[in-house]
Amino acid sequence: MLRVAVDRDGGVTLDDVADATREIDRVLEESDVMGELPFTLEVTSRGVDRPLTLPRHWRRNEDRLVKITLVEGGEVTGRIVASTEESATLDVDGDTREVLYADVAKALVQIEFNRKKKQNDSEDA
């Protein structure tokens, strides 16, 4: 079993996973790195259920709702509007709040099934 997780700023689409799968399979078939034994290739994205632990995770999830548990206690839920190497800027009920990653005990993306689209979002996005 060979598992590969793909990740990039802006997120990963199903087409990205399919493209990565084809390319990895091509490289593996052209080499003997896996030997003569049969193998299973599994290509996936990081998934929304994994905590945001690195600055690139925050970048990849900009415009998503996140629930943060702070080191000193308390929680913050807001939409990521920007991120740097040290902190994220959130929209918390219309107010802007900067959260330092050093102050975050845990951060998880919240799944939104019925999120209303902004006027400039396309219908099929």
Rank of each mutant, 00 (worst) to 15 (best):
Leu28Pro: 03
Ala125Ile: 05
Arg56Lys: 10
Val109Ala: 01
Leu70Ser: 04
Asp15Gln: 08
Asp9Tyr: 06
Arg79Met: 10
Ile111Glu: 04
Gly74Arg: 01
Val99Thr: 11
Leu100Lys: 12
Arg46Ile: 15
Asp95Thr: 13
Gln119Ser: 11
Ala102Phe: 02
Glu98Val: 14
Glu36Ala: 13
Ala20Val: 08
Ala88Met: 13
Gly78Ala: 03
Val66Cys: 05
Glu36Asn: 08
Asp63Glu: 14
Ala82His: 11
Gly94Ser: 03
Asp19Tyr: 09
Leu28Ala: 03
Arg64Gln: 14
Lys117Asn: 13
Met1Gly: 14
Leu2Arg: 15
Val43Ala: 14
Val99Phe: 07
Thr69Pro: 00
Leu65Glu: 10
Val81Pro: 01
Thr40Pro: 03
Thr77Asp: 01
Leu65Phe: 01
Ser87Glu: 15
Trp58Ser: 11
Gly10Ala: 09
Leu108Gly: 01
Leu108Asn: 06
Arg22Ile: 05
Thr96Trp: 02
Arg59Gly: 05
Lys67Leu: 14
Asn114Ala: 12
Thr89Ile: 04
Asp7Glu: 12
Ile68Asn: 04
Glu112Arg: 01
Asp124Leu: 09
Asp19Gly: 06
Val27Ser: 06
Val71Lys: 09
Asp16Ala: 07
Thr69Trp: 10
Gln119Pro: 06
Asp32Leu: 06
Leu14Gly: 15
Glu123Met: 02
Val99Cys: 06
Asp15Glu: 09
Pro51Arg: 09
Ile111Phe: 05
Trp58Asn: 12
Asp121Asn: 12
Val109Pro: 00
Gly10Val: 09
Asp49Tyr: 06
Asn61Ala: 11
Lys118Glu: 14
Ile80His: 04
Val4Gln: 07
Glu62Pro: 02
Arg3Asp: 15
Arg46His: 08
Thr40Gln: 13
Asn61Thr: 05
Asp15Val: 04
Thr89Phe: 01
Asn120Ser: 11
Ser83Cys: 09
Arg46Ser: 14
Arg79Cys: 12
Glu23Trp: 09
Glu72Gly: 07
Thr96Gly: 00
Arg60Gly: 15
Gly11Cys: 07
Ile111Ala: 11
Val99Asn: 12
Ser83Glu: 14
Phe113Ile: 02
Gly94Asn: 01
Arg97Asp: 00
